[in-house]
């Protein structure tokens, strides 16, 4: 099995004026292709920092990060943008859909930045919406959709660029229990059927239960790395 994410001795120190605040204190782990991993921890534990580093939204103070065989810890902003476009799909707690654009157009967004032509873009976006069960809502705008439907569109957006890893940051944080289960079901299905690597960041044990492996983060360190039987959606 290929290693998708290889993090070695990763640190991140924030400088607040004169004071240096270590958010991550040397984290090492590997995630293989096709794994469904939850990163759990209370707020302030460093899990958001870790998520930002894994998502190539930020660069580490030291350590290495190899994503799909590419060393990405020392890349500049423009190169990181390219890595995000090609390798990663994001799902956020607040969905972050563009409010005035249709669901289809929202899903096309990552493809626009990769310069995919109109026809292929449309085809891929429609397929992604089909996968999350939103093909009958393609022309709806976010304000015409429920929270769960918006999150499905957001998952379709993360999928449309054929990513290696889906990074979901508290994807059910704004949803009720029933809808949360539906969203987690979609992520599980993508993981099982497409062998897509899914990394989930959450502070809720209920949500982490859908993953097959849980990394517990506390005070900037990984304190536990447990395999588990995923809860059925």
């Amino acid at each position: 099995m290929n290693t998708m994410i290889d993090v070695h001795d990763l640190t991140k120190v924030y400088r607040m004026g004169e004071v240096e605040v270590p958010a991550l204190k040397g984290v090492s782990f590997q995630i293989k292709q096709g794994e469904f991993v939850a990163i759990m921890g209370p707020s302030g534990s460093g899990k958001s920092t870790l998520m930002n580093l894994l998502g190539c939204l930020d660069t580490p103070t030291s350590g290495t990060y190899t994503l799909d065989k590419h060393e990405v810890s020392q890349l500049d902003d423009t190169e990181l943008s390219a890595v995000r476009a090609e390798k990663l799909g994001f799902v956020f707690q607040q969905y972050n859909l563009l409010p005035r654009q249709s669901a289809l157009r929202n899903v096309e967004l990552p493809l626009i930045y990769r310069g995919v032509s109109g026809k292929e873009r449309h085809q891929r976006a429609a397929a992604a919406l089909d996968i999350v069960g939103m093909s009958n809502r393609m022309e709806h705008r976010p304000n015409e959709l429920s929270g769960g439907q918006q999150q499905r569109v957001a998952i379709a957006r993360a999928l449309s660029g054929s990513p290696s890893v889906i990074l979901a940051d508290e994807p059910t944080g704004a949803l009720d229990t029933k809808t949360s289960a539906e969203i987690m079901g979609i992520l599980q299905r993508l993981n099982r059927e497409q062998r897509l690597t899914v990394v989930l960041v959450t502070h809720e044990a209920d949500v982490a239960a859908y993953a097959a492996r849980v990394l517990h983060v506390r005070d900037g360190e990984i304190v536990d790395d447990l395999a588990q039987t995923p809860r059925a959606a």
């Binding site: 943008s81 476009a85 972050n96």
Partner: peptide
């Protein structure tokens, strides 16, 4: 968001 999905500066 645009940057997260791959937009360059």
């Amino acid at each position: 968001l645009r940057k997260a999905v791959g937009a360059r500066g």
